[in-house]
Design a binder for these strands. Structure first.
Lengths: 344, 344
DNA sequence: AACGGTACTGGAATCGTTTCCAGTCACAAC
DNA sequence: GTTGTGACTGGAAACGATTCCAGTACCGTT
């Protein structure tokens, strides 16, 4: 009886390499992993054989024995939005350079999120978890503790418990409000963005609004604050609501550029001009902000990812001098959507 | 001598569970992995103990024995751009549901890309590779073959060799051109986008331009075609070049919405109106397109990711009826940036 | 020539699973 | 009371690496 199945080519094992190089298993392992106590000649022999057959060690076997996984889980609530993508790019680039693999977990809605923390799909698969852009709740923290020996850090979101890299939201908001107030605006609206799938947190960007108004002795008008989900269309709808108040605002402070983009459409569709009739400012410096001449508070998302990953490496390597709380600066970028209010 | 180190809590092993449940190793394994031939009572006992101690099997050990990794590598040239992020979301959601882990590899520039294909960091770590949004060259294909038994598929980019999910670029381009031609435009410019880090491929979106003009009996003017990198600022610069030709185009066909956004800024900054002086159309239906009232050809990026992942699952499960070439439809979305040319 | 030391080397034991194989047990059939 | 059957079970042998331990060979000393 002929066997019909062609012999499936098999990945080589360390034993194969050792045999072909005419050395023992231990020696082959040491030669390949760069340990001392291998004579140069032997090492070369092993490396040559390995290279010739394009051999690489089986990471799973290696990790089973060694204990550490060489992987990091990155958990993010959005992937298609600039801020998250940029952070992810930053994280990935430094981890890849250090030979870590990135396991991606998207927790878009509440259901995803609950399931992630309940089932912990990354359990026993990673050395660390980087949480991108959302606060981890108390119950979720306890759940994460089941992942023994796993470091947790946060990127792009303030966090009291875990090491983190973020911007100072309060400061960014004050920069924005300061700019508007400095131009002479007094009737300033805020489009407050929240994540509807997440527990309501008092955000620094919102606090900045109230603090700034208060510092300027301006009495806040509740009708000028509308709350909506992040996103352009949401911003547009929120702006429509703002345009329905009896006395229009002369300026709008939006929690993010994308929200501001939407608001800009509504303003212009209503026949009003920017900045002559209404000024508007965002936060982010999204790549499209410059295309729309939007004045904004710039934050470097990629950098936050890079710094977070570097922080993580420092922690994993037990480097004593690793900072565990890094704040990335933000800058006011003045373009053409803000100007002094018209003299009334 | 007291030992100073606190006993580090250890992950439980299957042996621990088996002992605590009072069963043998094999039985515990069978009970946990849902195999038959375990009495209901025994199974319950094991599962209860496992749940009580929050035990999960070590994936690395399990995979070492079983052979399959349960992981898929996703390779993408950009993460912070909408199209790639959306595809990634789609891929991740279906893979996660099927208990696959996603290993993310970002190959931003040529150097990253070369290094990825030379060093194959995903080697022996995944069951499949999904290439997102770029064509794989011949040499790279050969390199991928070193990953024995690994399925390769492509998402969001046409591909002759691997199973793939994509839109029909030629058709999308013709839809765009058809719209402009139908409005009566004859002097149509094209902003052709390419990836400077990648080998020049004749793109369907470009071919559509020439074919459409030819079909309409319009003689193409080489001065009306400019080539640039993808991106808003690049689109803006390209448009500036187009505005410098002696006889202005009455319409612009941009290879993508982001490029169109940039072009729109340039047009308006030059004091021209859209669509009265110049019409413009893009491709993508980027979330911001509606905010800018941009007429465009809509493609569903997330869907492409979903379909690609489903295709991959079908292939991995050896389902006979798995399609290996899926084309996702595109639709013309008319907004306010296109209109008939002014009567001259 | 015996000895100690250095510099390598080979192989066994191990990591935590899965899977296979040889039982064990209860029960029905003869 | 055997015997056969089927349902379950326990434990050994993998999987492919790393690491430890016990050698071996060779060198320079005495």
């Amino acid at each position: 009886m002929l066997d019909m199945d062609a012999e499936q080519p098999r990945e080589l094992t360390l034993a194969d390499i050792a045999r072909m190089a005419g050395v023992g298993l231990g020696t082959a392992s040491r030669a390949l992993s760069g340990m001392p106590n291998v004579s140069p000649a032997t090492r070369k022999k092993v490396l040559d054989v390995a290279k010739k057959h394009a051999y690489v060690v089986s990471p799973d076997a290696s990790r089973l024995k060694k204990g550490s996984t060489g992987r990091v889980a990155v958990v993010a609530p959005h992937l298609s939005r600039w801020f998250f993508g940029a952070i992810l790019e930053g994280i990935e680039s430094v981890l890849r350079e250090s030979q870590f693999d990135v396991l991606l977990y998207h927790v878009g809605n509440l259901e995803d999120r609950t399931s992630f923390f309940e089932r912990l799909p990354a359990r026993r698969k990673v050395d660390a978890v980087i949480v991108v852009g959302f606060p981890v709740e108390e119950a979720e923290r306890r759940s994460l503790e089941l992942m023994l020996g796993v470091q947790v850090i946060a990127a792009g979101g303030q966090h009291e418990v875990y090491p983190h890299v973020c911007i100072d939201d309060l400061k960014a908001g004050r920069q924005a409000m300061g700019h508007l107030l400095g131009l002479g605006h007094e009737r300033i609206a805020m489009i407050e963005a929240i994540d509807p799938d997440q527990p309501r947190q008092p955000s620094g960007r919102s606090r900045a609004y109230h603090v700034a108004l208060n510092d300027s002795g301006i009495k806040p008008d509740p009708a000028l604050v509308v709350t909506t989900a992040w996103g352009g269309e949401q911003g547009a709808a929120a702006m429509a609501q703002l345009l329905s108040v009896s006395e229009l605002p002369t300026a709008v402070y939006a929690h993010s550029d994308e929200v501001a983009f939407g608001a800009m459409r509504t303003i212009r569709d209503a026949g009003l001009r920017i900045p002559e009739d209404i000024s508007i400012i965002g936060i982010d410096d999204h790549p499209h902000a410059s295309l729309l001449h939007l004045t904004t508070i710039k934050q470097d998302a990629r950098l936050q990812g890079v710094l977070a990953a570097q922080m993580l490496l420092g922690i994993l390597r037990h480097e004593e001098d690793t900072a565990v709380s890094v704040t990335v600066d933000t800058q006011l970028v003045i373009r053409r959507t803000t100007a002094a209010p018209r003299p009334s």
